[in-house]
Design a protein around this nucleic acid. Structure first.
Lengths: 164, 164
DNA sequence: GGTTTTTATATAACATGATATATAACGTGT
DNA sequence: ACACGTTATATATCATGTTATATAAAAACC
């Protein structure tokens, strides 16, 4: 058996590690979804949830809402459009904006998911995390807030005041 | 300003969230590396570290060591070979195995990195994480151990004993 | 009011993970 | 010893993120 170097290196490889854990969680979530008959990628769920919660949103607002870059949102929206879960119309006041909203099929999927899928996933993840004491979500929030306040590159820089 | 739905959904979107945090960390690490003149992708570092620590390794052992699937290891090894950081030779006892080892250029990069790059990255990440009390690494270890012991799909399943 | 800058979205190319499958070498069982 | 199963690696394709850049609409500025 070979040593897990990413684990051994600890903080040095935290990025790789979070990423691989996240991929694992998404893949497992995907499996739960398939077992419950939802034909959707796990990464597309947050888009539907955001639309359900916040009404019609533009592509850019969706990108913000799910926390990814705009081109990723454009792509996912196209896929959801293709699958007929969302509807797109150009904003009348500003023809650059494209307003994305749930179709009735999309709303049905959300309703079903909220009832049958999400509680199960949430419970499973919570069970996975809750065994141990400290609140991991607080940790992650702190990490994200910390990154927003000062990127690693700045933290790594000896003279922290002025940077490129 | 739009609500961060992934953050709001908490455990439900933990996968997406870890992934995006990991990507952010990797990107920031990449920037630190560039500032220090290292022409390497952040994700390739664990491979060099593993080789440095555990001597020549096969492709499969490397995949295990860095915690990814074998095709990913094959690709990264090819890239490192291209950049002349590693050397590959077929194992004499078993011609299926390909033994990967650091070249002198690779070893130099590791030595330089251990001295100048890794401590900085590690310190930056540790500073990012250490402000708050609980040990996040323990959390992540628990998450990974927990996933290994029982995948989410099983945890989500009402009758947990027997599953597909 | 026409030119320039900004903003919103789309597209292209890449990074890095995954799975599924092909191929070739090894080992085994009759 | 040969057929067959196993194992190690490679290849193909996909998922999902990124950055850089193109395009078109809106806003701002003489």
């Amino acid at each position: 058996m070979v040593e897990d170097i990413v684990k051994s290196l600890g903080f040095l490889c935290l990025g790789s590690r979070l990423r691989r854990i996240g991929e694992r969680l998404q893949a497992d979530t995907q499996q739960i979804m398939e077992e419950l008959g939802v034909s959707l990628q796990a990464a597309q769920y947050p888009f539907l949830a955001a639309l359900d919660r916040a009404g019609p949103l533009t592509v850019g607002e969706l990108a913000q809402a799910v926390g990814i870059a705009q081109p990723g949102a454009t792509r996912t929206v196209s896929q959801l459009l293709e699958m007929d879960y969302v509807d797109i119309r150009t904003s009348p006041e500003d023809q650059r904006r494209r307003l994305v909203s749930l179709t009735s099929k999309g709303q049905e999927l959300v309703d079903y998911s909220r009832q049958s899928v999400w509680p199960r996933v949430e419970q499973a993840v919570a069970e996975l995390c809750d065994d141990f004491s400290g609140p991991i979500l607080q940790h992650l929030a702190n990490i994200e807030d910390g990154l927003a306040a000062m990127p690693l590159a700045k933290r790594a820089n000896p003279n922290k005041e002025r940077k490129s």
